[in-house]
Design a protein around this nucleic acid. Sequence first.
DNA 1: GTGTGGATTATCT
DNA 2: GATAATCCACACC
Length: 201
Amino acid sequence: MPDRLRRSFFRKPADRLAADLLGQRLVRAHRGHRRAGIIVETEAYLGTIDAAAHTYQGRRTPRNEAMYADAGHAYVYFTYGMHHCMNVVAHSADTPEAVLIRALEPAEGLEAIRRRRPKARRDTDLTSGPAKLCAALDIDRKLNAADLTSSTRLWIEPGHTITPDRIVRTPRIGIDYAAEWTEKPLRFCLRNHPHLSRPAP
DNA sequence: GTGTGGATTATCT
DNA sequence: GATAATCCACACC
């Protein structure tokens, strides 16, 4: 079993986990081949109090059930009729917080990633968005509710240690309907990183 | 380089 | 029936 992040790493509030996931390595294995990228951008969704979260006010549906699992599971959902997005469940079972993975720096399996992203003109277009990276790493609802601490298909390995001065916080992307939660600085980026979904000031 | 609108359908109300 | 934690193409500067 490869070295990977354990349950205890994920058992913390989503905003702390969002910062701690920066610099770690997301790995997708399929038939003995690896695709991987370094996490460079995340967003925290703070559970039942967060008007932008799928679990706002305790909503619990078949789609978001994985957010109620223990920390360290994946929550993968389908949206806009054509895209998948991947989250890492935070905190603990029945406390439905999660971290959306928004961008990666491609690190392994570049040929396979490029095949999955035929419209990308430059390498910085390959995984610079939550749906782009799911397409690139072939992450879809088959992996919803996968346990990242034991899955043979999807996990996270320890990467670089990131010091706080290299992290920029901004409001979340695509949230314009969540009242006071719209502007909270819950997006976490590696400062000036070329693979961000959008530049962070 | 920036801004706008269309794609496309599972999911929820 | 309306919406969506998005992406891409194309117009315009």
